[in-house]
Design a protein around this nucleic acid. Sequence first.
DNA 1: CTTCCACAGGAAGGTCTGGCGG
DNA 2: CCGCCAGACCTTCCTGTGGAAG
Length: 417
Amino acid sequence: MKNAVHSDIFGRLLKSKGLFVDREAMRPTYTPGILPHRDDEINDIASVMVPALRGETPSNILIYGKTGTGKTAVTKFVGKQLLKKGKETGKHVNFIYINCEIVDTQYRILQNIANHFINDWSERIPFTGWPTDEVYTRLIRMIDKNGGVTVIILDEVDKIKGDESLYSLSRINNDLEKAKVSIVGISNDLKFTEFLDPRVRSSLGEENMIFPPYDAGELQDILKQRVEIALKPDSIDEDVIPLCSALAAQEHGDARRALDLLRISAELAERSETPRISRRFVRLAQNKIEIDRILEVVRTLPAQSKTILLAILLQEKQNKKAGSAGAITTGEVYEVYKNLCKKTRTNSLTQRRVADLISELDMLGIITARVISKGRYGRTRDINISSSSDEIMAVLKEDDAFKELSNYKIRGQTRII
DNA sequence: CTTCCACAGGAAGGTCTGGCGG
DNA sequence: CCGCCAGACCTTCCTGTGGAAG
C-alpha cells in the first residue's frame, strides 16, 4: 500500500487538478498586456518619450511611487511600445532596463549598458578588470556607432552606490556626437534627490512623476485581470478578490502585496486539494506572509538580540508551565539572558542596553512590549511573543551559538508552588 | 494621602569600525 | 599609509513615574 502511494509522486502531483493555468501571471515580475488604472501615467511617460520616435532626445524623467504602484510595469510597458513603434516607423530606438538594486556600482552599470549593444560574446566587457573610464569611453563609442536614441531605465536608482555613476550618465549626451541618450530613473524614496549633486538633480529630474497608490477598487480590477489569466475558471469564491484588495489597500495600496496574497491563497488551496479558493485561505495566506516575514527578520538578527529573544521564549514557557499567564517582565528576561550568556560564554550587556534591544524587537513586530505599572511592584514592560513562538524557536535553534543549549534548563527554576 | 517598587528612558561619554581626504 | 571623523554600539549615571499597598 505504502509503496503504491509513494511511487510516482510527481506524476500524481502533475495529474492532480491544480488551480493554476499560468502561475507566472501572478508573480510580481509578470508584465500584463493591459495595465488597469494607469492610463494617465502611461500617457504621461509616452508623451515625454515620443520625441525619440522623431530622432530627438526625450527629457530625462524621475518617477516616484511606493512599492507596488506599477512604476516598473508601466515603464517597461511604455518601453515595449516604443520599441515596437520604432520598428514600424523605421526609427532607430534602443531601450535598456537596469535594476540598480542588483547592478549597483558605476562599473557594472556602464558594463551592462555597453553589453546591451554587443551581440558577439567575445567582445563583451568583462565583469571586472578594466578601468572604469575605459569602459565609459568604449560605451560612448558604441552608442555613437549604434546611433539613434537610447532610453535607459534605472530602476531603484536610489540603490546606486556613490553618485559618480549618475553624474556621468546625466552628462553622457555631452560626450556623444550623433546618438542620443535619455534616462528614466525610478525610485520609491521621495526624498532621494535631496542627497544628490544639484547638477545631477536638475539634469535627471527634467520631468518628475509621482505614481499614487492604488485604492481597493483599482486593486480589485488588477486582481480580476490576473485571475483570468492565471487560474482555471470558477476556482475562486466571489468575496476573495475584494478581501485581498481591501487587505492590501490598508497596507498602502500595494499591488504586489495584493497579488502575493492571492497567489499564496491559491497555492495553499491547491495544496489542501480544495477546488475553490475561499476567504479561509486568504486568512491563512496573510498569516503565512506575516510569519515568513517575522522568521526572516529573526534569522538576520544580531547575536545579542537573538539571545534576548531566546531568553524571552524560555521565560514564556517557564511562566506558562507555572500557570502565571504570559506576562514577562524586563527583569525576568534579563536574568534568563545573563544565564544564557554564561552558558554560551559570551559577555552580557547591561540591563539598560537589553531594555533598548527589547523595544527594538517590539518595533520589528516580533514581540509586543507595553509599559505597565504593577503599583507597589514597580513599573516594567509587559512582554508577549507574537503567536508563532514555536517557529521562532526553530529558527533560533539553527544558530550555531545555541546548538549546545538544546538541553538547557533555566537555572533556579525550583519554584514555590 | 504617602510610599516605594522596578523599572523606563534621557544624557553624556567611551570604544571600535570603516570610509575618506591628504 | 596615516590621521581624522562620523556613526554604530555600549556603559554609567541619572531622574522620573503609575499605581497597589499601607
